[in-house]
């Protein structure tokens, strides 16, 4: 493996340059010359309207979609040069859900996170089992080990998938709308766990979110995606302003200072959503680009 050590170092920076993606089924480019730089140690929130390309972006960053135009580099190395297993030791993905046609238990599912560390054609050993038990404990699902994945609630499924990523042991975690289907308790529990991973273990979190206020409460940096491009990027308090959000979402916001912790809340104003017609690339016009 000598000579490939660079491919296993924790990434300090992921650079995206002129990333463009035109799936056959969409009428326009879903990603359109997108540029951005993600840095180690931060808690990123990616926000933007439906169909703006948030999911497509992280799917490219994880190489779940092959980069066709533009470039994605991990510490200067083009992402296409990594072997799949090498990538899976650096970047981990927490999907919203997984297929449960074949019913595995919670523990078996978390064990799958160890796959990048198990040699080809091998099986989990004692160290893998220890990692899995630790991951389940840290996400509070230790008592569900023998439960079948098919009977879990949305919140439990998310925790199991997070545990799987923890067991995977990657320095970077990518999450696609991890809290969209959860009640408020599970939303905050999930976000707290992510903050913990970020603060205590120094993991970089890149998280697609729909709730602007959750993003403002938890994220250090915000990436706003609109029509396949970066509309804004930077420190949370600089980016999340009523004027920027109005431009992106077409809804007016006002700022409300929540008492106590000094949290700024952005409150959308009812009745302010205006129809944006053709220029807004709606899902109904082109089909859902995420599923392409």
């Amino acid at each position: 493996m000598s000579g490939r050590d660079d491919f296993l170092k924790p990434p300090r920076q992921i650079t995206v340059e002129k990333l463009t993606w035109r799936p056959d089924s969409a009428c326009g480019p879903v990603l359109d010359h997108l540029d951005c730089i993600l840095e180690e140690g931060c808690f990123y929130g990616i926000i933007g309207p439906n169909g703006s390309g948030k999911t497509s972006l992280i799917r490219h960053l994880l190489r779940l979609i092959r980069v066709e135009e533009g470039e994605v580099r991990i510490d200067g190395i083009n992402i296409s040069r990594f072997r799949r297993k090498e990538l899976a030791r650096l970047l981990s993905y927490v999907p919203q859900k997984i297929e449960t046609g074949i019913r595995f238990t919670v523990e078996e599912t978390v064990m799958m996170g160890r796959n990048p560390h198990i040699r080809t054609f091998g099986y989990p050993d004692r160290k893998d089992r220890e990692e899995v038990i630790a991951a389940m404990k840290s996400t509070g699902i230790g008592d569900m080990a023998a439960k079948s994945m098919s009977v879990l609630s949305g919140g439990e499924t998310q925790r199991v998938l997070l545990a799987r990523s923890v067991a995977q042991g990657c320095p970077w975690l990518f999450l696609d709308e991890p809290v969209s289907n959860l009640d408020i308790y599970h939303q905050f529990m999930m976000m707290d766990m992510l903050r913990d991973l970020n603060r205590r273990e120094g993991k970089t979190i890149v998280c697609v979110l729909h709730d602007i206020n959750l993003a403002s409460m938890y994220c250090d940096r915000i990436l706003v995606i609109e029509k396949g491009q970066v509309a804004a990027m930077g420190e949370t308090s600089d980016v999340l302003t009523p004027s920027l959000l109005e431009g992106v979402y077409g809804v007016s916001f006002r700022v409300a200072e929540a008492s106590g912790e000094g949290t700024r809340m952005l409150v959308p104003i009812p009745g302010s959503a205006r129809y944006r017609g053709e220029e807004h690339r709606g899902e109904s016009l082109c089909g859902d680009p995420k599923k392409a």
């Binding site: 779940l64 297993k85 999907p95 997984i98 595995f104 799958m112 995977q168």
Partner: peptide, 23 residues
């Protein structure tokens, strides 16, 4: 037989399997 563990992972979905290092 040697691919049994990978087959487990594949059963959870393509994205899920690829993000765990399986083609």
């Amino acid at each position: 037989l040697p691919s049994c563990f990978s087959l487990d992972v594949l059963a959870t979905g393509d994205d899920s399997a690829e993000s765990l290092g399986i083609d």
